[in-house]
């Protein structure tokens, strides 16, 4: 499953990936915070949409993330 930047409606602001809470190959559970992003005045923890394994990070800390941009891929349990 693709993890993409959610719509925050944060106008005129670039979004930066500021902190990974988990490593590649690590198991994640639905709702677990896996990555933090930041705009000018706000940080936002993005939770895992499903349980599984974080198989690939598409961004590193400090990188900009485009609207709806790909952040990571998660292999769902049972897939």
């Amino acid at each position: 499953m693709e993890l993409r930047l959610p719509e925050l409606s944060e106008k005129n602001n670039e979004t930066i990936l500021t902190l990974w809470h988990v490593a590649e190959s690590e198991r994640v559970s639905t709702g677990q915070d896996i990555v933090e992003i930041a705009t000018d005045k706000a940080t936002f923890d993005i939770p895992a949409p499903c349980s599984g394994t974080l198989i690939k990070k598409h961004k590193t800390e400090g990188e900009k993330v485009a609207p709806n941009g790909m952040i990571a891929e998660i292999r769902e349990d049972g897939s």
């Binding site: 709702g31 915070d33 000018d40 005045k41 706000a42 940080t43 936002f44 923890d45 939770p47």
Partner: peptide, 20 residues
Amino acid sequence: RRGVWSGGRKIAFIGIALKR
């Protein structure tokens, strides 16, 4: 510019975070 201003000087400062 973000924040609240009085006479061109900043009087209040904002920084937030969100979980779920």
